[in-house]
Design a protein around this nucleic acid. Structure first.
Length: 557
RNA sequence: CGGUGAGUGGCGCAGCUUGGUAGCGCACUUGGUUUGGGUCCAAGGGGUCGCAGGUUCAAAUCCUGUCUCACCGACCA
């Protein structure tokens, strides 16, 4: 590609709206332009990266036995009514009507469509297992789109769905996808981690997320320093203390009018809505943690007796029920059910609120050793749940997620086959997503410097920049540049030939901004020795090459 | 949806308090100059100031309404 025939679209200044570095650089490097909130046009440079990412995903999925299909973005509402998600999905599902007033949705995901397809096309166990995928545009009407392409409303996703007769078979495909995902992110040259994850609203049991590690990541992931254990903070379990606390039988409740909030054995009590076994609202529940720990809301709302989603009591409600403020709440003598975190149950001689205005209890102790549960977030330094090593915490950007769905959709939509014994059997499913467009942004978050993007070779928009110095003044430079360009293009290398009549500095800056990993600079200075200069974007390393060696040198990169 | 802030040429901003009919830098066009790290000079083109209404002789500026966008909180690839 010649810059003179290309839409480079680089900018010196960063648009004010861009907060995170990947968004800023994608705008400045001329990769994307915003059309409306969460909606972006991909310019040529951005699209090149997006396509490279998509192709790696496609190749590895094919290798792993998945088969590509393409489903519509617009889907009939009946399918969503059948699965129950027309009601459940909420306002993120963009609903539209056609000219006949029939309801449709813009697909945020494709479980319904694929399940409807498979129940019609597959009728025998002999056709299983089956793993179908597509790389396609999704639409989710996000409450707050942000970070540019990272959380857009319209985005490109690879979604795969597998169908099986047995759990063993599902596990087998799941493992294969897990391996494929590792291969995909490795090929892209990204630093990533697979972690145990919450399966969220999509449903199902076993689930792993794949995170690109970056300081700016929205998720916290934890992992052991001595084993393979890695999990999203949402899911990382804390262990009950090994030595159960032999607490004194009687509680020595000493009331104290002054809040001694800095006490190291202080307990925090949080009041939330209670629920019966059907998750119908019922009364209140107190959650008790050590003050230095934070509540894990996902763990808490999974508890029987706690309303899901979590609903915190307001100051007024606490006042009405207990007669004090939130900070005066304590576990001792409360008339509502009390749920105690492992760590909180293990302390003795603790300080806590006395459920009286302005009063604290010091040297409090549990009357009966309470049954404790895991409701806090793990902290760096906690022991790893697998018993090996301690945990550390890093930030990650979620770029992939694999689930074992079970029969949630197949039974709701009656998707089954005849088994070997001639009986109808409902299928069990897996689903596997990759945020293709998000990977582009995540890769930048992980690979940039003050000059711009530093693409890993595998997903760079161009592999090589050809930068002639003042070509318009030197026929000799022009000849060498044109020759090299033709040679390298014929070799199948993605070359960006900067044939603009620009000053060297402009060219250097643009090529570094858009992050071309390798460049060749052609100047009079080195041409006298039949040499050109090679520069590596990632390492900054420079070296002189004889013109005749360029072809081989680049091919060997 | 709640909280905060912003809408002025393609981008970054000033002007608004103290109404008088729009300005700067970048980018763009032309000519010259310069040439291994965003040269310099000159001459140009482009905006009725988000939208609607109001006050006024006069509104980017004051008032009302409305739309849009960004940032901070609960969801997700």
């Amino acid at each position: 590609m010649r810059t003179s025939e290309y839409l480079l679209a680089t900018q010196k200044e960063t648009p004010a709206e861009a907060e995170v570095i990947s968004h800023q650089l994608m705008l400045r490097a001329g990769m994307v332009r915003k059309l409306a909130s969460g909606l972006y046009t991909w310019l040529p440079t951005g699209l090149r990266v997006l396509n490279k990412v998509a192709n790696i995903v496609r190749e590895e999925m094919n290798k792993a036995g998945a088969i590509e299909v393409l489903m519509p973005v617009v889907q009939p509402a009946d399918l969503w009514e059948e699965s129950g998600r027309w009601e459940d999905y909420g306002p993120e599902l963009l609903r539209v009507k056609d000219r006949h007033e029939r309801d449709f949705v813009l697909g945020p995901t494709h479980e319904e469509v694929i399940t409807a397809l498979v129940r019609n096309e597959v009728s025998s166990y002999k056709q299983l297992p089956l793993n179908l995928y597509q790389i396609q545009t999704k639409f989710r009407d996000e409450v707050r789109p942000r970070f540019g392409i990272m959380r857009g409303r319209e985005f490109t996703m690879k979604d795969a769905y597998s169908f099986h007769l047995t759990q063993d078979c599902l596990q087998n495909t799941y493992d294969r996808m897990y391996q494929a995902y590792n291969a995909i992110f490795k090929r892209m040259g990204l630093e990533f981690r697979a972690v145990i994850a919450d399966s969220g609203s999509i449903g199902g049991s076993t689930s792993h997320e794949f995170h690109v590690l970056a300081e700016s990541g929205e998720d916290s992931i934890v992992f052991s320093d001595q084993s393979d254990y890695a999990a999203n903070v949402e899911m990382a379990v804390t262990l009950p203390p090994s030595s159960t606390n032999e607490s004194p039988l009687a509680s020595e409740c000493v009331e104290n009018s002054s809040h001694s909030s800095s006490h190291e054995n202080r307990l925090t009590t949080i009041m939330v809505k209670g629920a019966n076994e059907e998750n119908e609202e019922e009364g209140w529940v107190a959650l008790v943690l050590r003050a230095e720990h934070s509540l894990n809301e996902i763990k808490a709302e999974k508890l029987v007796g706690v309303k899901s989603p979590l609903e915190f009591a307001t100051d007024t409600q606490i006042k009405e029920l207990v007669g004090c403020t939130a900070s005066d709440l304590g576990p001792l003598g409360l008339s509502i059910p009390v749920i105690v975190d492992h760590a909180a149950a293990a302390v003795s001689n603790f300080t806590c609120g006395a459920n009286l205005p302005g009063k604290s209890i010091i040297n409090g102790n549990w009357v009966d050793t309470p049954v404790s549960v895991d409701i806090r977030n793990v902290q760096a330094g906690d022991p790893s749940p697998d018993g090996q090593g301690t945990l550390s915490i890093k930030r990650g950007i979620e770029v992939g997620h694999i689930f074992q769905l079970g029969d949630k959709y197949s039974s709701a939509m009656n998707c089954g086959v005849l088994s070997e014994t001639g009986k109808h059997q409902t299928l069990t499913m897996g689903c596997y997503g990759i945020g293709v467009s998000r990977i582009v942004a995540a890769a930048i978050e992980q690979n940039h410097d003050k000059f711009g993007i530093k693409w890993p070779d595998a997903i760079a928009p161009f592999t090589l920049a050809l930068i002639p110095m003042n070509m318009h003044k030197s026929q000799r430079i022009k000849d060498v540049a044109e020759n090299l360009y033709n040679t390298l293009i014929n070799k199948g290398i993605d070359v960006l030939f900067d044939d603009r009549k620009e000053r060297p500095g402009v060219m250097f800056n643009d090529m570094e901004l858009i992050g071309v990993p390798h460049s060749i600079v052609i100047g009079e200075r080195n041409l006298d020795n039949a040499q050109v200069e090679y520069k590596c974007r990632r390492t900054g390393e420079k070296q002189l090459l004889s013109i005749d060696d360029v072809e081989d040198f680049i091919a060997a990169l």
